[in-house]
């Protein structure tokens, strides 16, 4: 798996964990294919948390997620989020985000 993608996902996971104040969980414990949002998930995140993720993506990559349907699709797993970022964000923004 692509090194860029690896680093990107790790950072996204850390940022999200911090943003939502999830306790006792590290990025390693979240699988890339794991469901992020929903009942019975490891993070137990809900759509109020999704707003945090939308903010992270907007601020770092200038990516706009339009509407709840779109967010539902993209936020299914970190893999999906990572793919979306690599597809739509500029290379520079990804590089500078990873090196933060």
């Amino acid at each position: 798996m692509n090194e860029n993608m690896n680093q990107l996902l790790f950072k996204l996971k850390s940022d999200l964990i911090e943003a939502v104040g999830a306790k006792n969980i590290t990025p390693d414990e979240i699988g890339n294919e794991d469901q992020i949002f929903g009942d019975n998930t490891a993070l137990e995140l809900d759509s109020l948390d999704a707003l945090e993720l939308v903010t992270i993506l907007e601020q770092n990559f200038d990516l706009k997620i339009n509407g709840m349907k779109a967010s539902r699709d993209i936020f299914q797993s970190f893999n999906k989020i990572g793919l979306h970022v690599l597809e739509h964000a500029s290379e520079n923004s990804v590089k500078s985000y990873i090196s933060q």
Partner: peptide, 21 residues
């Protein structure tokens, strides 16, 4: 609020709501 319906429904449960930030 621009959030998911299941989120609101979940927050109607007393314990879950209590633990919200």
């Amino acid at each position: 609020l621009g959030i998911w319906t299941w989120t609101v429904k979940r927050h109607l449960k007393p314990q879950i709501f209590k633990n919200l930030s």
